[in-house]
């Protein structure tokens, strides 16, 4: 279990983390989601012991580890671009954290770990010959080798793309579930956060803006900023309150409420931008093959079930 209590990291007059508190249950995968510069990576470094907080405490399994240096914390860390030791082969990278064990034991564990990440037989490979995805798997095996109490992943899929990314994402999720690991995972990608995190902590400017399951987060973003960051673009004043309107709740029919500005097909659905005569801009999504085209005059109806009230009043 990880407990972060009122951690502050100040860099001169600026606070990278501003009295941030957070709890991760044992066996849970928590995702830190936020734009770059929001302090996600710094929080990971604080938990790993690579960065001393200006104030606040970090507890692992109930023990205060704030003064414990990184090499005695038993926290595994994987960076975005693997950061393998370039002067050691794959096997000796994985073996680095197994210092003290006998050679045979080390060889056996390395082979088992490589098998776990799907790289059986890679032990003698030079790290320079690996693809991005393979390097990331080696980094994962290396981090798991000393059986860490907690695994921290900093944008683990950030340097990968396409099908490779999806496959590693699935593998990671299965692995975490199978090993019962406590994982904190950092990303700026909403889809990745929802796919990997059982709970997601949205970070903004050194603070936690909201912690919730992906489902809750999507159903009820805490404020306009969170809604906007999650990709909801219809943040409007409706009946005198600031609300988010799901694009699928915006129904268009021929009429005189506004003018279609854009119509973009995105796979099976079509995203339609409407400028209403009252000045609001709304996005509507439809799966219909026939849809209004730019320039068409439309009537705008909003299904009340798709309107999410925002708790805090904050200008977007």
């Amino acid at each position: 279990m990880i407990r972060v209590e009122a951690v502050r990291v100040a860099l001169g007059p600026r606070s990278i983390l501003a009295d941030l508190s957070l709890e991760v249950a044992a066996g849970e995968t928590l995702t830190l989601l936020g734009p770059s510069g929001s302090g996600k990576s710094t929080l990971l470094r604080v938990v790993a012991g690579l960065q001393q907080p200006t104030s606040g405490r970090v507890l692992l399994d109930g023990t205060d580890v704030t003064p414990v240096p990184a090499h005695r914390r038993g926290v595994g860390l994987v960076f975005q671009d693997a950061v393998l030791f370039p002067h050691r082969d794959v096997g000796r990278n994985v073996a680095f954290g197994l210092a003290g064990a006998g050679k045979e034991e080390v060889d056996r564990r390395v082979e088992a770990l490589l098998e776990l990440v799907g790289l059986t037989g890679f032990a003698r490979r030079a790290v320079g010959t690996l693809s991005g995805g393979e390097a990331q798997r080696v980094a994962l095996a290396r981090a798991l080798a000393p059986a860490p109490r907690v695994l921290l992943l900093d944008e683990p899929l950030g340097s990968l793309d396409g099908p490779l990314r999806d496959r590693l994402q699935d593998d990671l999720r299965d692995l975490f579930a199978r090993l019962g690991l406590t994982v904190v995972h950092v990303t700026h990608d909403v889809a990745e956060a929802f796919a990997l995190g059982r709970r997601v902590a949205v970070m903004r400017e050194g603070r936690i803006a909201q912690v919730a399951t992906p489902q809750e987060l999507w159903r009820h973003p805490a404020d306009a900023w969170v809604a906007g960051f999650l990709g909801m673009r219809n943040i409007v004043v409706h009946d005198g309150r600031r609300v988010v309107v799901r694009p699928e709740a915006v129904q268009l029919s021929p009429g005189e409420d506004g003018t279609v500005v854009t119509a973009e097909r995105r796979g099976p659905s079509v995203l339609i931008g409407v400028r209403c005569d009252d000045g609001r801009t709304l996005e509507s999504v439809t799966t219909a093959l026939e849809h209004p085209a730019p320039g068409d005059r439309v009537r705008v109806a909003i299904d009340p079930s798709g309107v999410i009230a925002l708790d805090t009043e904050e200008p977007a």
């Binding site: 470094r45 690579l50 990184a70 090499h71 860390l77 960076f79 680095f96 080798a145 000393p146």
Partner: peptide, 17 residues
């Protein structure tokens, strides 16, 4: 890359190692 040394630290290597 200073993170190479950081990774070694999280793997239990003390400053000398």
């Amino acid at each position: 890359d200073g993170r190479v040394s950081d990774v070694a630290a999280t793997l239990g290597a003390d400053p000398a190692r």
